[in-house]
Nucleic acid binder design. Structure first.
Length: 226
DNA sequence: GCATTAACCACAG
DNA sequence: CTGTGGTTAATGC
């Protein structure tokens, strides 16, 4: 088994930047790097989890099995940690993570991670910050989902893809229509229709999975007012 | 009542 | 896998 050299890693997290040389080598010894192709599962709901995942590159969707259908909790883009709540908070995963782009992930042994949290406050601080930001994002998403109409929910997520994930007005949708529906809590048909409607209004341009945002202001209005 | 919203079904590229 | 049309139920003037 090859051990990773976290000391020389260019993609390491801000938290890991705070580790001393000796801590870095401890981390490296308990850390394994793996590549996931689009569609491959990184970890699975209900399975035992004994690792914290750090995403170096790529894009991932988090899924939960609901009573009716599978819900997409959210998308997560590298660099970020995955599974801290689900691994620290319980023995099993409460959700699955599936790569939706080619993704490189480091698997960190939970005991090593806990030990680093314990001995290095600057490391812990960065982890807490990331967890807190996550929680705030989740709260916002929750309110949007519950109080906005589908139009607004879809618009919000298109803007999110554009500004936070791809940093461009043009990108290829990483999900099919049905998955977008699972993300915005709607049906596949409605997503199809709304995308064509937005295209008719010349707010966006759609060609299969390719999407271009033409009128960001109007999309923002729709996103806010629903 | 009448309009709007959005889900479900069905069927065709 | 997608786009559209018809139908239907819930909700709001």
């Amino acid at each position: 088994m090859k051990t990773s050299s976290c000391a020389s890693c260019l993609l390491r997290s801000k938290a890991v930047d705070n580790l001393a040389e000796q801590e870095l080598s401890v981390l490296g010894e308990s850390c394994v790097e793996a590549v996931f192709e689009k569609g491959e599962t990184i970890f699975k709901q209900d399975a035992l989890s004994s690792n914290i995942i750090y995403l170096q590159t790529g894009l991932v969707k988090l899924l939960v099995k609901g009573p009716q259908r599978t819900q997409i909790l959210r998308l997560k883009k590298a660099p970020c940690y995955l599974g801290v709540p689900t691994t620290m908070g319980d023995k099993i995963n409460h959700y699955s993570a599936v790569a939706i782009e080619r993704t490189t992930a480091c698997f960190i042994d939970i005991n090593t991670f806990k030990e680093l949290i314990r001995i290095n406050p600057d490391f812990s601080y960065e982890i807490i910050i990331e967890l807190c930001r996550n929680e705030l994002e989740q709260f916002n998403r929750c309110v949007k989902l519950v109080q906005n109409q589908v139009f607004g929910r879809l618009a919000t997520h298109l803007l999110d893809l554009s500004t936070h994930i791809y940093q461009s007005d043009q990108f290829d949708l990483p999900l099919n229509r049905s998955e977008i529906a699972d993300l915005v809590c709607s049906s596949r048909e409605t997503v199809s229709r709304l995308l064509s409607d937005l295209a008719k209004e010349e707010i966006i341009k759609v060609d299969g999975k390719h999407l271009e945002i033409l009128d960001k202001n109007r999309l923002q209005q729709i996103s806010e007012k629903g």
